[in-house]
Design a protein around this nucleic acid. Structure first.
Lengths: 192, 192
DNA sequence: TCGAACACGTGATCC
DNA sequence: TGGATCACGTGTTCG
């Protein structure tokens, strides 16, 4: 009933106010939610919810796909190399792609291998030991907008070195991995 | 006014029903939205919205990070390989060099590569970082009648290690390189 | 006029 | 008993 007194008038007023606040919070949340949805036209309550749902599903799906991609990308293939090709490209997916890129086949060294993980780069080089070899190599690496975090050189066999370098790309770095290897190799050939 | 007749009674009923439907649609949407949020306890209207907002932001952030990762990570892993006569590693008889390894197993690790030069052996391992990893590996290597001269482990990427070991065969060593890798891999799989 | 969307006050319910 | 939440019917506004 309209005029019923089931509640003391004072409490009734508090009730009204409380409800008002509650409504206010909800519509604020709804507004914040709407702000997160890209390309939202209808500000209509139910549209906001509907589009939020749709967008959320889409995000979850995409996130899952990206994560799967990344996970699969870490999977490395072969290590036992048997090809004698000069320039052996090894993709992650196809473990035996042996297209032949020719380089000058005189000197087998340096042998270069590179991998990336986010902004980090791992470089492995197999080359002849010669004077200033290591500092030259590191200097070459740093020319490529890479800052060397760690390096290690192991002598092995007759006058050869196995060098492992971990470096980090700076903001200017923009090469593909393949170009990195190619450029580095050309740089190193100058003093070898 | 309460009893006002601004509306015909029949239309008034339609109004009520329409509003009922509208409310129903909204609460359905809200329910669907709640269903998409993982680990949601309070089914309270505003909590659903609040958590949806939070979750959405989190997803957007993660998606952005993943996309950045993918963009910066070049698809391939490129490798220069030269055949060298002095390091006679390559396996020339079979056409697919990885047939003897269980590349089918879910975990690609450990990735093992080995080379020899006279009595010296170079072993490179790419594996996940886990407890006691390095000492276990070295212990496994020594089981194969190899004495470790030098070892180096570089963390790279997400919880993986690039390990390089130089060892020397003792008189009892008689394995082929291929068997060495195979045996070592099997040994390592026991604790990985 | 009609249909849709909204905010409001209110009674009920659940810790 | 409060304090918070909910669904409801209603008046109003907009296209």
């Amino acid at each position: 009933m309209v005029g019923s007194l089931t509640r003391a008038p004072l409490l009734a007023q508090e009730h009204v106010i409380a409800e008002r606040k509650r409504r206010e919070r909800i519509s604020q949340s709804l507004l914040s939610l709407a702000a997160l949805i890209p390309g939202l036209k209808k500000k209509d309550k139910n549209s906001v919810l509907g589009d939020a749902i749709e967008y959320l599903k889409q995000l979850q799906e995409r996130k899952a796909r990206l994560e799967e991609q990344i996970a699969n990308r870490t999977v490395e293939s072969v290590k036992f190399v048997k090809k004698t090709t000069q320039f052996y490209v090894q993709d992650d997916q196809t473990s035996s792609s042996d297209e032949n890129f020719d380089t000058q086949s005189k000197n087998p060294f340096p042998d270069i291998e590179a991998r990336v993980s986010n902004k980090d780069v791992l470089i492995r080089i197999h080359c002849e030991t010669n004077k200033g070899c290591i500092s030259n190599i590191i200097s070459e690496v740093e020319k490529l907008h890479l800052s060397v975090l760690n390096s290690n050189a192991l002598p092995f066999g007759q006058a050869t070195l196995y060098i492992t370098i971990v470096a980090q790309m700076d903001d200017e770095f923009s090469m593909t991995l393949r170009d990195l290897v190619k450029t580095l190799r050309e740089g190193l050939l100058n003093f070898m």
